[in-house]
Design a protein around this nucleic acid. Structure first.
Length: 616
DNA sequence: TCTGGACGCGCC
DNA sequence: AAAGGGCGCGTCCAGA
């Protein structure tokens, strides 16, 4: 068995996808326990990799091997298919999972791991690491002489660290599966998402104009400063705003920490409390409009490569294992709001392609059902049933609901309660968010416990289990729970983490010809760009992959995983035109009209039309 | 000049 | 005793 430990020295890592030849500058490798070799003969290293039984490296699946695939034709698909890659970054996260939040964001670098495991750290320079120091000195990672002794020493040390680290990491079945998963998701970064740069430019200009108007209004009417991107959140702006509120006869709203509250909630509350105060209502509305201004178009532009595409980062860094897509953050693009769902119109299928998509139905609830094995809960998720109707019937009774003839009148309330219970929401918060009395909220949560005893028992068990700090989901993903937060985090991690792995099960079941078309994963949704003439076939394949029955143990009851497909789109927003029937502008056909007569259309507004006509 | 925290927006 | 989870990004500010 020959194991090759690998690390590359490259130009700026951010430019992996568009730097061009010369990106990989120096390779360091060690076979087994033999000394580390460094070389600029990258072709030779690729040949060594293809001969090795196992290639080991830190983030090799996310960086080094894709670089060698892109620039040197490495057959990465084969390496992964034959289980010949071991990524110590993936392994480290499974071995020692991260807490939620940002606290653990820097715990998994090779440096940090080496320090934590006492493998001997790296000497730090002026700019941080030794490598950064060199990059500073020579003004660019791609300007460091490849024979610089510090550069070579750094690379040698990294390969040695990888080798030592790999000896300490446990490889389990989940980790092996995770390598397959992350290789597949790697196609999202590799191929990128095509951007409508003309539309991006137009939206940037329109936003700038709107922001200017808002700033001027706050300046002339309320005496706020004009400087800054958000004057009302600067020190001077806050002072002026406090004065404006007092002048308008109200006490300035506060956040829990005592700062001036300028958020949606506080402003809406002020408006409802003082509807007759015209000046105040105007101020609140202006501030809310300002808060709502986002710069997604700017972000897309800044992350676009020279190929006219964004190549986002894709990683499983979250405490639950959920997939983060960043730079740009595709998972946080507009969807629910009429005002910003058209952000997705900036993302396009490849030329000659259409975008297709599907989302998993109530996947968090199904994940909970699998784990808790509650008969009633599983029954509520049976095919043909509407889960929220069933939950409504369980909590509120069946009065006023005729099965098969429309939804339960309190379906919407039940939806919130189901969500609340999975995440451990208490009666007070439920009452506040849903507008119930405390007693009603208490009764509803209690009813839920009675009707779904298995669910209640499971939550109790997993909370206790979390006292060991690390819990595992049905697939074997290990998830860290913060001590003290077991009550809410433990069930939530199971719901989210298993939902994630069910989606990844679907990704693993996708036929390989679809992988180059992968464009985004948004937790329970998957988006692909496929050739228009193969769209039927692709949609069938995606639904087939995403839908299956799953049992968490040989003797457990199986639960179905079901998916709904979205529309074929000529841009990403276009995929939701039937889901958002009331918003005609979601459809690309509508957006291409010169003008429209729909009241409330967020595309054909007078502001937009006055720019230069939207339908170019 | 850079970085981390706070805040507030958005997504699931 | 009570307890809503997980994120990314832009902006501003304080502190190094």
């Amino acid at each position: 068995m020959s194991t090759l430990h690998l690390d590359l020295a490259t130009a700026d890592a951010d430019r992996l996808w568009d730097y061009g030849p010369g990106f990989v500058r120096l390779a360091g490798f060690a076979v087994g326990d033999s000394p580390v070799v460094t070389t600029t003969d990258i072709t030779m290293v690729v040949e060594m990799i293809e001969k090795a039984d196992l290639v080991v490296g830190h983030n090799v699946l996310g960086f080094d091997l894709p670089a060698l695939e892109l620039y040197y034709g490495l057959d990465l698909a084969r390496l992964v298919r034959e289980d010949r890659v071991m990524d110590t970054l993936l392994a480290a996260r499974q071995n020692d999972p991260p807490l939620s939040g940002k606290v653990d964001a820097r715990r998994y670098s090779l440096d940090a791991l080496a320090k934590r495991l006492e493998l001997g750290g790296k000497p730090a320079g002026d700019c941080g690491s030794a490598l950064k120091t060199l990059a500073c000195e020579f003004e660019g990672y791609d300007k460091i002489p490849v024979d610089h002794p510090d550069y070579v020493r750094y690379l040698v040390q990294d390969v040695e660290l990888v080798r030592e680290l790999s000896k300490l990491l446990v490889v389990d079945d989940y980790l092996r599966r995770e390598h397959q998963v992350m290789w597949r998701l790697g196609h999202i970064a590799k191929h990128g998402f095509r951007v409508d740069l003309d539309l991006v430019q137009r939206l940037i200009a329109e936003r700038a104009a709107r922001v200017e108007t808002l700033k001027k209004r706050l300046y002339t009417v309320h005496g706020l400063p004009l400087a800054g991107k958000k004057p009302h959140t600067t020190t001077a702006g806050i002072l002026a705003l406090e004065k404006a509120f007092i002048d308008l006869g109200v006490t300035p709203p506060r956040t829990p920490t005592g700062a001036l509250a300028t958020g949606k909630e506080a402003l809406t509350q002020l408006e409802t409390q003082h509807p007759e105060n015209v000046g105040l209502v105007e101020l609140c509305q202006t501030l809310r409009t300002f808060n709502g201004e986002r710069s997604m178009a700017q972000t897309l532009l800044e992350n676009s490569s020279s190929d006219g595409r964004v190549h986002p980062g894709v990683a499983a860094v979250q405490a639950t294992g959920r997939i983060s897509i960043t730079d740009p953050g595709l998972s946080v693009m507009g969807k629910r709001d009429r005002g910003n769902i058209c952000e997705r119109a900036m993302l396009l299928p490849d030329v000659g392609h259409v975008l297709i998509g599907a989302d998993l139905s109530q996947i968090d609830a199904r994940a909970m059902a699998m784990h808790c094995q509650d008969e009633n809960y599983i029954a509520a998720l049976a095919p043909g049933k509407d889960m929220h109707d069933e939950m409504a019937a369980a909590v509120f009774g069946e009065d006023g609901w005729v099965r098969g003839a429309g939804h339960h009148p309190r379906r919407g309330d039940a939806k919130a309660i189901t969500h609340a219970t999975t995440y451990g929401m208490g009666p007070a918060a439920l009452a506040a968010s849903a507008g119930y009395s405390l007693a009603d909220a208490e009764r509803q949560l209690a009813t839920l416990e009675l009707k779904f005893p298995g669910l209640a028992a499971f939550k109790k068990w997993i909370r206790a289990d979390a006292s060991r700090q690390v819990i595992a989901n049905a697939f074997g993903r290990r998830m860290r729970v913060q001590p003290g937060k077991e009550y809410t985090q433990a069930p939530a991690h199971i719901g989210q983490g298993t939902a994630r792995d069910l989606m990844m099960e679907g990704v693993l079941r996708l036929p390989e010809w679809l992988l180059p078309g992968l464009r985004a994963i948004v937790h329970d949704e998957i988006v692909l760009s496929v050739p228009e003439h193969r769209a039927d076939e692709a949609e069938a394949a995606v639904l087939d992959a995403l839908q299956f029955a799953y049992r968490i143990a040989p003797d457990a009851a199986s639960v179905l995983v079901l998916a709904d497909r979205s529309d074929r789109g000529h841009d990403w927003a276009d995929c939701y035109r039937s889901e958002k029937k009331g918003w005609p502008e979601v459809a690309r056909d509508h957006r291409e009209l010169m003008t429209c007569t729909y009241v409330g259309c967020t595309w054909h507004t007078t502001d937009n039309l006055s720019q230069e006509g939207r339908a170019a």
